[in-house]
Computed example of a mutant assay.
Amino acid sequence: MKTLAMDAAGKLISSSYELDLYRPNIEDYLPSGSSINEPHGELRLRDLLDISPTLTEAAGAIVDDSFTRCFKSIPPEFWNWNIYLFPLWCFGVLVRYLILFPARVLILTIGWIIFLSSFIPVHLLLKGHDTLRRKLERLLVELICCFFVASWTGVVNYHGPRPSIRPKQVYVANHTSMIDFIVLQQMTAFAVIMQKHPGWVGLLQSTILESVGCIWFNRTEAKDREIVARKLRDRVQGADNNPLLIFPEGTCVNNHYTVMFKKGAFELGCMVCPIAIKYNKIFADAFWNSRKQSFTMHLLQLMTSWAVVCDVWYLEPQTLKPGETAIEFAERLYASALII
């Protein structure tokens, strides 16, 4: 795409030169009512695009290379409006909504019953035994995340060594949806840094997820950045703390692209362990566009899809090289994520 834009830009310069050479004849090609002698002595952009296919290609390349496409859902290709396949699609809708969805709701309900009947006694009765309580709460959080993945008929393939609890390390991962946290949490109880949400998600954050050491921030609070940075530095120093997970993109991206990492996770002076998550869109689109859809509707969409299929790669840990800045460190890991 960059090559196309550069070629088009080169042609644009050439076309501008030719425009000066043949200026007297351009009016022959302008739309009726247009004149080369506009109020400010310049041609309007739409007139130039009308007479120059090269300019049209250049403008199209710029628009197609827009940063905003990273945050838009890419609709699937329509295949079901076919007289032979449409009945099969209708049958699939009935299976997903009348068979799979009730079964998944039942699985999730059973999971919450088991979790709450175990978590509440552990949280209340073992307050004086912090080490045992944290260990049991960590296992229970992993358990409820397993039930969530089961309610999507999740098929998750993990590649690489399982994360371990060690001081001075932080895990970073690309971010497609809040379910990234659930997919990773069912394998290892991470302490994640995440934006504070309202509603039932916020209730879970302030009660259950607090038990694994998660850190919440609020973008509307001006002093929150300094407070979170201090908590992060304290968190990575603890030998018994759960592994810290950060999504350095800072927002959900549609899993077709990866945006530049923010430097906060890379200036903690510790080992950085990259994680790459890739979802398969054949069975379900895991991207959550929070501006258009609530997280509740996002979960319902996943529970009425065929399955959530994804691969998770635990990549080789990286450390800051001598003379390397935090921004350069972030760019290096960003480049390694693009390979996946």
Rank of each mutant, 00 (worst) to 15 (best):
I165S: 05
T296N: 12
G269F: 04
A9Y: 11
T325K: 12
A337K: 08
S164T: 03
W79E: 09
I83T: 10
E137C: 14
V183D: 12
K263Y: 08
A335N: 09
R291V: 06
Q318S: 14
E331Y: 13
F247P: 04
Y17M: 15
N289D: 13
T207L: 09
K321H: 01
E137S: 03
G10A: 13
E328W: 00
V192F: 14
P322G: 00
V172S: 01
K321N: 02
P163H: 01
S117I: 05
L245M: 05
I83Y: 06
L204I: 11
L100Y: 04
L204K: 14
H123S: 10
R134D: 05
Y171Q: 03
T3H: 15
R133M: 07
A5E: 15
E137D: 01
S211E: 12
V309D: 08
E27T: 02
P24K: 06
L45T: 07
L55T: 01
L125W: 08
T54S: 11
R235H: 15
G33A: 05
L302Q: 04
E331R: 15
A150V: 03
T207P: 15
I179K: 09
L85F: 13
E249D: 03
L21A: 04
W200R: 09
L245Q: 02
A326K: 06
L4H: 11
V170C: 10
F295N: 08
P121K: 04
T251G: 01
G92P: 10
C70D: 13
A286N: 13
E221A: 11
F86Q: 05
I13D: 15
W313I: 04
F67G: 12
W288M: 05
R23L: 14
T188P: 15
L30E: 02
E42L: 08
I107Y: 06
H159W: 01
A307S: 10
V309T: 03
I246Y: 02
V95D: 08
F78M: 15
L139C: 13
V95R: 05
E316P: 07
F217E: 07
S151C: 05
S117P: 14
E267P: 08
M1V: 02
E331I: 04
L315D: 12
A5Y: 13
V312I: 11
N242E: 07
A284Q: 08
T109S: 15
L48N: 02
D240T: 02
M260P: 15
V259T: 08
T258R: 13
C90W: 03
H298V: 02
G160P: 02
